[in-house]
Amino acid sequence: MFEAIAFYLFAALTITMFTITVMTSQALYAITAMAAGMIFISAFFFILGADFLGAIQIIVYTGAVMALYAFGMMFFDTTRDVVEKRTNPQIVFVLGVLAAVMVVAIFVAPIVSNNIQALYPIQEGVGNSQAVGMVLFTKYLVPFELAAVMLLVAMIGGIVLAGKKMDKSLTLMKEEEIGLMDDTFEPKAGGH
């Protein structure tokens, strides 16, 4: 009974939160609702007994959404509504509905055709994190390592892009030096 109550409560909360994320035109509401929705999703993992994934969901998404807040702070006045530029609402509507239908079809198709099997049944006497580790380092080793390499590539790319002129500090420079730097600081062929 408790599971059912908790499931419906968190299902309603999650759907409400993500609806707010999509429908609101205020950046602060959208990001906050998304953070809340991501944290509420962890409740489903806890209900299913996957404590490890639940805790990881909380840790990963609080950090990830925090980065979104940083961008939101830089790009928007978060206390005002964002005026969206809608040039062609029909296309947006059609594409949105199509994407939603496709996602539902992808997830419903295996359930409808009864084609889901648990390939790695739960082992008795093995903790949650150990079970995740076993599957991760046997069956899913290659995707796991590939993901790690991709993250490494992204990190190196980020450092290379952001690391130019990192040793120079604008606060320590004189006005003339900054003026001289401006010419070299701009990209050569208007690459904005």
Binding site: L28, I58, G72, T78, S129
Partner: peptide
């Protein structure tokens, strides 16, 4: 059985308070 992860994860959400309060 993932006590320490849970504690640190939920504690980390606490910093959303200053963040949201400041931004709002």
């Amino acid at each position: 059985n993932v006590g320490i992860l849970y504690v640190l994860g939920v504690m980390a959400i606490g910093l959303y308070g200053p963040l949201l309060g400041g931004m709002a």
